[in-house]
Simulated scan of single mutants.
Amino acid sequence: MSRQLSRDTAPEVAVRRLLHASGLRYRVNVPVPGMPRRTIDIVFPKAKIAIFLDGCFWHGCPQHATHPKANSEWWRVKLDKNMARDIETTKHLTSEGWTVLRFWEHESVEDITRQVTATVAAKRAATNKH
């Protein structure tokens, strides 16, 4: 487990590269405000947009999650805690006025980038109206 990347995974880097190429600037691996030991993968701080790119195995993707046979009970508890933590983090950020976008690692990098770009544009447009 110690060799598993928790940041700068291939999907994260690919999405960041496309976002940057489209002119968007963001921060990476930012601590979740008010929640120690949790980080947001990609953040647009002024717009309060948090993007998470979740790994299928570690976060329980309904399409691709696998269940190890060795030490299965330990893994079930571990992965259930990960999913509960994801829900808790999303609820916390949402209650603080953040827009939270979660994507699976298997999703198209181009589709993710389009959705993020549209969300950032919409949020900035709404902010500029005030």
Rank of each mutant, 00 (worst) to 15 (best):
H67I: 06
H67Y: 13
P68W: 03
P68I: 02
P68H: 08
P68Q: 11
K69Q: 12
K69S: 08
K69C: 01
A70M: 07
A70L: 12
A70R: 13
N71Y: 04
N71A: 08
N71V: 00
N71S: 09
N71P: 07
N71C: 03
N71I: 00
S72L: 06
E73S: 09
W75Y: 12
W75N: 03
W75H: 04
W75T: 00
W75V: 00
R76P: 03
R76I: 04
V77D: 13
V77P: 04
V77Q: 12
V77H: 13
V77R: 14
K78P: 02
K78T: 02
D80V: 00
D80R: 02
D80N: 12
D80F: 00
D80Y: 00
K81M: 14
N82G: 00
N82H: 03
N82T: 03
N82Y: 04
N82S: 02
M83R: 15
M83P: 01
M83C: 09
M83Y: 01
M83Q: 14
A84V: 04
A84M: 03
R85W: 14
R85N: 15
R85E: 14
D86I: 08
D86E: 09
D86H: 14
I87Q: 15
I87K: 15
E88Y: 02
E88L: 10
E88P: 05
E88H: 14
E88A: 15
E88D: 14
T89D: 01
T89V: 06
T89P: 00
T89K: 07
T90S: 08
K91A: 11
K91V: 08
H92F: 10
H92R: 11
H92W: 11
L93A: 09
L93K: 02
L93F: 07
L93H: 03
T94H: 07
T94M: 11
T94Q: 13
S95P: 10
E96W: 02
E96M: 13
E96K: 14
E96Q: 15
E96R: 12
G97R: 07
W98L: 08
W98I: 04
W98P: 05
T99H: 08
T99D: 03
V100F: 01
V100C: 05
V100M: 06
V100I: 06
V100Q: 05
V100R: 01
L101Y: 10
L101G: 15
L101E: 06
R102Y: 07
R102I: 05
F103Q: 00
F103C: 05
F103P: 01
F103Y: 10
W104E: 05
W104S: 09
W104N: 12
E105T: 11
E105K: 10
E105L: 01
E105G: 12
E105I: 05
E105S: 12
H106S: 09
H106L: 14
H106E: 03
E107H: 04
E107A: 07
E107K: 04
S108L: 06
S108W: 06
V109E: 04
V109W: 00
V109M: 00
V109F: 03
V109S: 09
V109N: 09
E110G: 07
E110I: 10
D111P: 07
D111V: 04
D111Q: 15
D111H: 12
D111W: 11
I112F: 08
I112N: 09
I112W: 06
I112D: 05
I112P: 10
T113P: 13
T113Y: 10
T113N: 11
T113H: 14
